[in-house]
Structure formats: structure tokens, C-alpha cells
Amino acid sequence: MPEEREIVMKLWRGDAGGGAFETYKLPAQEGEVVLDVVHRIQATKAPDLAVRWNCKAGKCGSCSAEINGRPRLMCMTRMSSLPIGEITVSPMRGFPIMRDLVTDVSYNFEVAKQIPSFTPAPKPPGGYRMSQVDIDRGQEFHKCIECFLCQNVCHVIRDHEDNKRVYAGPRFFVRLAELEMHPLDTLDRRAYISEAMGIGLCNITKCCTEVCPEDIHITDNAIIPLKERVVDARYDPVAWLGRKLLGRPAPLSAVQAARYTGAASSAARSPSARAVPASPETASSTGLPAD
């Protein structure tokens, strides 16, 4: 009879006030993912364990966590893919801890309100036409499940919380790229992307791409094209001269573009100070070991 293997899993237990890792041991079962083991711990050893999940199929983006320090979806991480030994599961470090493995990701929804909305030219019903080649480019961006692993791993806000006020983060650069590349959209967001969304803070180290469970090439297909568009609008004297000679309009200012955001408060419409508070209770201040 084969020897029964044992799983040793350390789960973060605590809340915004502090906490610590607790170790759980349980027998291994064939074909499990990390979320299965967490559920078994919840069912048999820690009924008060808080964990957010929904589809268990990598499509809802709810069960984001850090497994052995790497941001991943718990439901898409097979136990057999992890090295033998102790497995650590901790909440996303980039967001305030609510309880145990659950974090408060509302920062992202505040940023979402700051995105200037889709703005097609006015046409009568049935008047809009798009070609397949124009639609194809944006399809990749539609795969985003908003798990916010990219936001969590981005060091611009993970290691420098004060930047949450001035930086949108990879998920929203994907959204902005989707809008900027939409064949029917007419709004010029380039100055806004630079001034209010803080794309210049990104130093393209590609961690967002590495952790994306949907395999979206965030850096190559969204962030760098946006950076190049910002160069067109702000840093390229040849492009400036071309606009002057051809009589093309100057890029829309960030203040003008901000009028198209869904944010209600006037502060949110100021490109220099978005209404996103830098949270003091992110995981790094609640006793989680330093990165």
C-alpha cells in the first residue's frame, strides 16, 4: 500500500490589525488545486477562514493570492506543480487586508471611474460599422478577468504606495489601450494617460505580463503602445511639426479628456490629484514578511 503523502500549508490568518501564518497539515489528494486544499482546511480545521472565490475555473478572478510568494489564482495552481515541501498562501500584498486571504480591492474600482469613457462619433442607430481587422486587435484585452494580480505585482504601487494617487496600473492601461485602439472611438486620451494615469511611472519590467492568468501581453501590446502614443503627443518634435504642417489638431489636454470620465466628484476630474487614497493598511503594514 503506497505511503500517504502529507500537505503542509501555511495560511495567513489575521486582519488589518495584524496577524500571522498558521500551519495546517492534511493528507494529499489526487488532482487538487490550491483552492481545493484551502477549502478542505476551511471545512475540517478552520471554519472561520476567510477566502474569496467563485467559479473555480479561472474565469471570475476572485481567488487571487500569493502562493509561495508568487501572485497567482488559487484555482488555477495545481498542487502537483508546486515544489515539494511547505506551501505558503498569503493575501495579495498590494491591497489592504480585510481578513485572512481576503483583500479590499476597491482601489481598482476607484481608478476605473477615472477612465475617460468610450466616445464614438454621433451616428443614427445602425450607422456604426467596424471591420474584422480593426476588432481583432482589441480581442486580447477583452480576456481580462479583473483578478488584479497585475495591479498587485506592479512594483510602482506595491512598493511605493504613495503612487496610488497618481498611477492607474497595468489593468487600466489594458483598458485604456482597448479604448485607444477601438475603431469607433474618437477621444484623444494621450495627455490624460500621461498626466492623470501616470504611465511614465511604469518602467516596463513586465511583471504584469508574467502573472497574467489570461496570458494577455500587457506590456508589449498595451503599455508600450500607449507609451509610444504618448511620445507621439508629447515628446516627438517631428510629430509636432507634422501636425502643424498638415493642420491636424493638437492633442486633447488632460483636463479636457477628464470631462469624459465616469467619476462623480470634482476632485476625481482633476488630472493632477485623483481621488484615490493611498491606503495605510496594505498587506505590508499588517505583519506579512517583507518581500
Partner: peptide, 26 residues
Amino acid sequence: SPPACAVADAGSTSPSGLRSHYSGET
């Protein structure tokens, strides 16, 4: 900045323990 994903920036915390300012490519 950062050395690897989910590994802290070398300059993210100053000796005083305060988070240092990061300005990226701005």
C-alpha cells in the same frame, strides 16, 4: 527595481523605514 516579480525594490524603503519616492521614467 524590482529585481524580480513580487520581490521588493532595492530602494523601496529608506534606512529610516519610510517609503522612498519613486518617479519611474517621468
